[in-house]
């Protein structure tokens, strides 16, 4: 297990490096360097930058130097000093802006992941055991529809329903009185009350995919000879299914959970924007719209790194539950 972990760590490092390069590439994409853009923007507002300060920034970010030099300055500052650069729109360090919102993003992501599992696993298993029966058809059709509804549409629809029929003020993760309040029991409750819409919406699409995978895996496993072996021992039906096919069908499930993380972040960006949540998604969108590239690049980097770590954890989990992976036989 230890060696497996080390091996996976070795795989993760190049991935992280390439992801950071891609993130920086995106920062570089808009035409012209961002300082010029910012100066133009400031001048349009009738402000101007002190030439000395300008020169300092130029050196700090390596403007005008080759891509790799700029990249190196950017990434080394992040890794060594936790310095993601400066957001021009907010005139604050990117790291501060991200850290304010990252907690909620991760919370939202985890809640979504858990909800996805809680819904998808039993639904997939039931769908497989009751193949070609009513329950299977209902789950399949619901799954198809859930897969087809764009999540911003679902968010809008749910928000509308909440607004229209429950009088819930939609938007944000907190009610007005709690937005700037310190953490308290009431604030947590308020958060949970607001959390369910985005969580349900983001979970929706992922759930449909996982139900289908689980169902397919279970159908494959249910007809394997080892299930008959278990029955032939005299095991009760429920336990036969729990101990054998379910256990094995879970393996791809655990590994798809890792692949599922990117789609959760994708959903978060859209849904959080529609519902005006205080997470990183709207911040990213805003920064992209205003070409506040260090902020955008920082968020993309953080999200990608979180995803890679999530995938890494799911790989380790898979190895923990499946000896074939652990011993390199699958």
């Amino acid at each position: 297990m230890l060696r497996f972990t080390l091996y996976r760590v070795l795989h993760v490092i190049p991935t992280l490096i390439i992801i950071s390069i891609i993130s920086f590439f995106i920062i570089q994409l808009p035409p012209g360097d961002f300082l010029t853009t910012q100066i133009a923007a400031l001048e349009a507002q009738g402000e101007s930058l002190d030439p000395a300060q300008l020169e300092a920034l130029r050196i700090r970010y390596g403007i005008g130097e080759p891509f790799w030099v700029q990249y190196w300055k950017w990434i080394s500052n992040i890794v060594l000093h936790g310095d993601f650069g400066l957001s021009f729109q907010y005139q604050r360090p990117v790291a501060d802006l991200i850290s304010e919102r990252l907690g909620l993003t991760v919370l939202l992501g985890l809640a979504t992941l858990i909800l996805t599992w809680v819904i998808a696993l039993p639904a997939g298993v039931i769908s497989a055991i009751r193949q070609h029966k009513a329950a299977d058809y209902i789950i399949s059709v619901l799954g198809f529809v859930a897969l087809a509804v764009p999540n911003f549409l679902a968010a809008l629809a749910l928000a509308y329903i909440g607004f229209r029929f429950f009088g819930q003020s939609v938007g944000g993760l907190f009610s007005a009185e709690y937005v700037n309040a310190p953490w308290s029991f009431g604030r947590v409750l308020d958060l949970l009350e607001h959390l369910w819409i985005p969580v349900v919406v983001i979970a929706l699409a992922g759930t449909a995919g996982i139900i289908r995978t689980t169902r397919a895996n279970m159908l494959d496993e249910l007809h394997k000879p080892y299930v008959t072996t278990a029955r032939a021992k005299g095991l009760p039906e429920g336990r036969t299914i729990r101990k054998y096919p379910l256990r094995i069908a879970l393996n791809p499930f655990v590994s798809t959970a890792g692949w599922n993380i990117p789609s959760i972040f994708d959903g978060e960006v859209i849904v959080a924007t529609v519902l005006a949540l205080g997470t990183t998604g709207p911040l990213l969108l805003g920064s992209l719209r205003s070409q506040d590239m260090y902020l955008a690049g920082g968020i993309i980097l953080i999200i990608a790194v979180l995803t890679v770590i999530g995938t890494f954890i799911s790989d380790l989990l898979l190895a923990a539950v499946d000896p074939r992976v652990r011993f390199g036989k699958a």
Partner: peptide, 18 residues
């Protein structure tokens, strides 16, 4: 695998914004 392990939407957004 690398492409599949990173969230695509932020990337799209980044590219589309350009």
């Amino acid at each position: 695998e690398l492409f599949m392990s990173i969230p695509t939407l932020p990337l799209w957004l980044g590219l589309a914004a350009s």
